[in-house]
């Protein structure tokens, strides 16, 4: 997701119309340098504005954890979908068009007031890329991989998540054949929100189990 929503300083719209004036604001040194680079490279036919746009879009949209978030959001609003996700994770995820790569065998783990799930790859760094994008650095760290098995509550504390003694913590070890997706609990105060809005509450960490879904306030909604 882009970190800016307002009109880009130079966006994808066309400026070929000579009568189309914007008020000029002096660019910073770095902005001027980047504009110099882009205008020269395009003039020399080394690249195109479109090619740059495409790469930025691919990077921003295809590698983030939003595919997994959409699965979770749908399971929150659609009880029939939730039931299918519980029975056959891979099949229910494929319904949304996410197939291939490493999502072949996905089991959805549902958090509740009494159970908290968290997964790890103790042997290497198996990770459902198609659903969650690039694995975070800590996921591959020996510290996380070793400690989450023996002291899951301590690890969760490191992530700022303190669970009451009544909550049972389940640790799952992922492998090349078996992947997991934690479905966090739906946060309170989210009645009436659309699936797209709900998906914004579902963080990567929540789907690994090292965090909870965000409140609407935390997500800036």
């Amino acid at each position: 997701m882009p970190a800016y929503d307002e009109e880009p300083i130079f966006g994808t719209h066309d400026h070929k119309d000579a009568n189309h004036h914007h008020t000029w604001t002096k660019p910073s040194t770095i902005e001027a340098r980047v504009r110099a680079l882009e205008s020269l490279l395009v003039e020399k036919n080394i690249t195109t504005h479109d090619a740059i746009d495409t790469l930025v879009a691919v990077f921003e949209n295809d590698l983030g954890p939003m595919h997994g978030a959409k699965v979770v959001a749908k399971s929150w609003v659609d009880p029939a979908y939730r039931a299918r996700l519980e029975a056959d994770g891979t099949g229910a995820i494929a319904e949304l068009g996410y197939r291939g790569l490493q999502t072949e065998h996905v089991k959805a783990l549902f958090n509740s007031p009494t159970d908290h799930h968290i997964w790890v790859c103790t042997l290497c760094s198996c990770y459902p890329w198609t659903l969650l994008g690039i694995p975070p650095v800590w996921f591959k760290s020996p510290a996380y991989r070793a400690k989450v098995v023996s002291q899951p509550r301590e690890v969760l504390k490191d992530f700022g998540l303190v669970l009451g003694p009544a909550v049972e913590v389940h640790v799952w070890d992922t492998s090349a054949e078996q992947r997991y997706l934690v479905v966090p609990e739906r946060p309170p105060g989210t009645d009436g929100m659309s699936e797209d809005e709900l998906a914004k509450l579902v963080t990567r960490d929540a789907m690994i189990g090292t965090g909870k879904a965000l409140s609407p306030g935390e997500a800036g909604l």
């Binding site: 880009p8 930025v56 954890p65």
Partner: peptide, 16 residues
């Protein structure tokens, strides 16, 4: 987990 650009020039530089 999502890439962050703090300003448009950063994404243009990345894309180039």
């Amino acid at each position: 987990g999502e890439p962050v650009f703090d300003a448009p020039w950063q994404s243009r530089a990345f894309g180039m």
